[in-house]
Each structure stands twice: as C-alpha cells, then as structure tokens.
C-alpha cells in the first residue's frame, strides 16, 4: 500500500465548513439542482405551480415566443422505463385540439432523462377549489344548473378525446380548471390511455385518483375504456351535486328548489354512471351527457324508469308556463260561463 493510504482523516481543505452547509442550505441546493434545464435556455422558470409524486408543474416564460407557459416535468423517481412511450403519449394528447382540452405546445426529454411537456398556461380555478369557494359563499343552497353546465362542458371535451381514441383515466376535481366565465378545461392527461374503437386499453399501472378511479383501474389486470371516464364523471356529478353529503343542501334548478322526488332521476344517472360493472354503465360519455341535459331541461332520462304520477308531475313542472296559461284560460272560461 502507498504510504498515504492509511485510512487517516482526509485533508479537511477538501470540504467546506459544515456550518455553511446546514440542512436548509442542502434542501435549497437540492431544490434548485432538481429544476429542469432546457436546451438553448428557451424556457425560463418563474415559479412552481404545483408538485406531486409523479411530476412538478412550473410556470415558465417561453423566451422565443415571449409568452408564459406551464411546463410539466416528470419526476425522475417515476420516470417511465421507456421515455419514448411517454413522448408518444404526449403526441397523442397533442393532437387533441379542443377548446376544453389544454393544448400541448412542446414535449421532449431533458438531458438528465426526465420527460417534459409544455402546455398553455391555463388561468382559472381547479374544480375542487371552485367548489370550496362556492360552499363558503352559501353552503345551504346550490345552483345545480351552473354545476350541470360544468359537467356538460366536461363531457364535451372528454367525448372529443374518446372520439380520437384517448381515455383520460384520471378525471378528478383537481384535474379540471374552471375559467372566469365558467369555461371548463380538462388538464393532466399524463395517465391517458390509447384505445382503438370500442376496445379497451390495458393499464400499465394503477392510475386515477382515489374516489374517482373506476374499479377496473384498481385491478392490475383491468382494462380501461371510455366507460372508465364515465365512472369518474359520474363521481364528479355526484360531488358537484353533493348527493353524497350527510347534510345535503337545497339544490335549485332555474331558481326553483328541487324536492327529493325531483332528484331521483339525477341519482339514477349517477348510479348508472358509477356502476361497478363497466358494462352496466353508459356506453359513452355522450349518452351520459344526454341524460344530464335531459334532467336539466326537465325531460325523462334513460337511467330512470318513472311511475305515472312522477311522469305527470314532471310534465307539469316541465311545461309549467303552458300549464299555467291553460289553467288560467280554463278558469276564465268557466268564470265567463258562470257569469252569463
């Protein structure tokens, strides 16, 4: 062994003073070193918009085009084994040009191996936060009409994606943004799966958000399909209408409160959409949306077999103005006859 190789304490000048390197300083260094570095320094990171187990979303400035964008960088700890596959998924979603789907501007792989996806910076409020704000405003009364419109817009965007053979697989209140004018943008397509026609796609891993994941997503051998998204949207409808609340608020539609009887069709829509067996659910998001729209307009819904009194009651409510006019006319006619 060489003389210097004695196991002695190494030269202390080869390290900096421990006092200068506190846990907080190391934490800061790790955070800045984890920040992605882009080729040509095209994107300047401005802020962190959100961070989860699988990715971090940064607010960044696109120096070339002079606009703000959101960049989602996959966490290295969950880096897909095949980065090409992740980029292929970005390409699939990038083809979905719909006003309700966040557009992808760019995607690629960092020098350190992580994949990234550059998206439009969507301004708005996540549905989860939007619901909390609404509840803080008046927790005892809910304008169901506004919430049904959100669900309908969501259905439009998701149906468009299904038409292109893409299933979102992770629809939840955190993955939808509500704009200032009530517009809905579906975010976070990172868990999306490609399907062909009506065939399902086998999931590579368990996905989705607890409470909104369809049973087949929790089964590693499960096959996802558009009905998987139907399940999640059904749960979203249930959440928006607070049908599962222990102390349900008063739901209003068109300014009028809905009684327990009037809510049965809505409960039936949710029940069909969230059936355990995928085959028992709506065959498509469009069919689900049609029922939601019918409910909003006071028409019959396919998920609910109403009794004759219910049908009469609904028809009377549906044509309230006409019935009112007719009743007024008949009363006037009767009064005239009696007067003569």
């Amino acid at each position: 062994m060489p003389a210097h190789c004695s196991g002695s304490m190494p030269d202390t000048s080869a390290r900096i003073d421990d006092a200068a390197l506190t846990d907080a300083t190391i934490g800061h260094l790790r955070a800045v070193l984890e920040s992605p570095t882009f080729e040509n320094d095209r994107y300047e990171l401005l802020d962190t918009l959100g961070s989860g187990g699988t990715a971090t979303v940064f607010l960044a400035r696109d120096r070339w085009l002079g606009r703000d964008v959101a960049i989602k960088v996959a966490s290295a700890s969950v880096l897909p084994l095949d980065a090409a596959r992740a980029l292929a998924e970005a390409r699939i979603v990038g083809r979905l040009e719909h006003h309700g789907i966040v557009p992808i501007y760019d995607a690629g792989q960092l020098a350190d191996g992580r994949t990234y996806c550059v998206m439009r910076r969507v301004r708005g409020t996540p549905l989860a936060e939007w619901l909390r704000t609404e509840a803080a405003r008046d927790a005892s009364r809910i304008d169901l009409g506004a919430r049904l419109r959100i669900i309908e817009q969501l259905c439009e965007a998701v149906a468009f994606a299904h038409g292109a053979g893409v299933v979102h697989c992770d629809l939840s209140p955190n993955n939808m943004m509500i704009g200032d004018f009530g517009e809905v943008v579906v975010m976070d397509w990172g868990a999306a799966a490609r399907t062909t026609g009506n065939d399902g796609a086998r999931r590579r891993e368990v996905g989705g958000t607890r409470g909104f994941s369809a049973p087949e997503q929790l089964d590693s051998s499960g096959v996802v399909s558009p009905r998987t998204d139907v399940y999640a949207i059904g749960r979203l409808l249930e959440t928006c209408a607070e049908l599962d609340s222990p102390s349900p608020p008063t739901l209003t539609l068109g300014g009028r409160p809905l009684g327990a009887g009037a809510l049965r069709p809505l409960q039936a829509i949710v029940a069909r959409a969230t059936a355990f067996d995928a085959d028992a659910r709506y065959a498509s998001v469009s069919a689900f949306a049609k029922d939601v729209r019918s409910f909003a307009f006071g028409d019959a819904v396919s998920a609910y077999q109403e009794s004759m009194p219910e049908r009469v009651g609904r028809t009377l409510r549906r044509h309230r103005v006409l019935v009112g006019l007719l009743a007024s006319y008949l009363i006037m006619r009767a009064a005239l006859l009696l007067w003569r």
Binding site: R30, L33, E34, S75, A76, S77, L79, L110, D112, G113, R114
Partner: peptide
C-alpha cells in the same frame, strides 16, 4: 441516488 438527491437520471 441520483433520483433521490437531484431528481435526475444519471
């Protein structure tokens, strides 16, 4: 180690 420390792939 690279992932845990720096969040990068080495």
């Amino acid at each position: 180690d690279a992932r845990a420390l720096l969040g990068v792939d080495a």
